[in-house]
């Protein structure tokens, strides 16, 4: 407990990713699913940053660069997802993913 190492951060990243995965699969509400995805992004980002800090590398800052791209994509994804949610709501009057089953056989 008196020192913090790579493993500690990886564990937190893994837990965040797990929670996000669970939410994105299990939640009924579209926004809940989105929240899960964002948590997964965060878990991954944390992992990138901690590798960047701890692991031997010629260019340690590459992890940061990756995270910046991930954040960019996350922002774009959130904007489009919001638009989808609103569109979905307008068409189906619900954002409950269980009820959006038009593509089901």
């Amino acid at each position: 407990m008196d020192s913090v190492d790579l493993e500690h951060f990886l564990v937190i990243g893994a837990i965040l990713f797990g929670i996000g995965l669970y939410m994105s699969l299990a939640k009924r509400n579209f926004v809940g699913v989105l929240i899960g995805i964002e948590l997964m992004f965060n878990g991954v980002n944390l992992t990138f940053i901690s590798f960047s800090r701890f692991v031997e590398s010629a260019e340690p800052l590459n992890g940061h660069i990756f995270v910046i791209f991930v954040i960019t994509v996350a922002a774009a994804e959130a904007a489009v997802a919001l638009a989808l949610a609103v569109l979905l709501y307008r068409l189906r009057d619900t954002i409950n993913v269980d009820q959006i089953d038009l593509l089901k056989w």
């Binding site: 009924r28 926004v31 964002e38 959130a78 609103v86 269980d98």
Partner: peptide, 22 residues
């Protein structure tokens, strides 16, 4: 992103506010 999520919630007023599992 959190603001976008909030927007998604308020723009869908008749949808459920519940966050339960399916």
């Amino acid at each position: 992103i959190a603001i976008l999520l909030i927007f998604a919630i308020v723009l869908t007023p008749r949808a459920g506010r519940l966050n339960q599992e399916g």
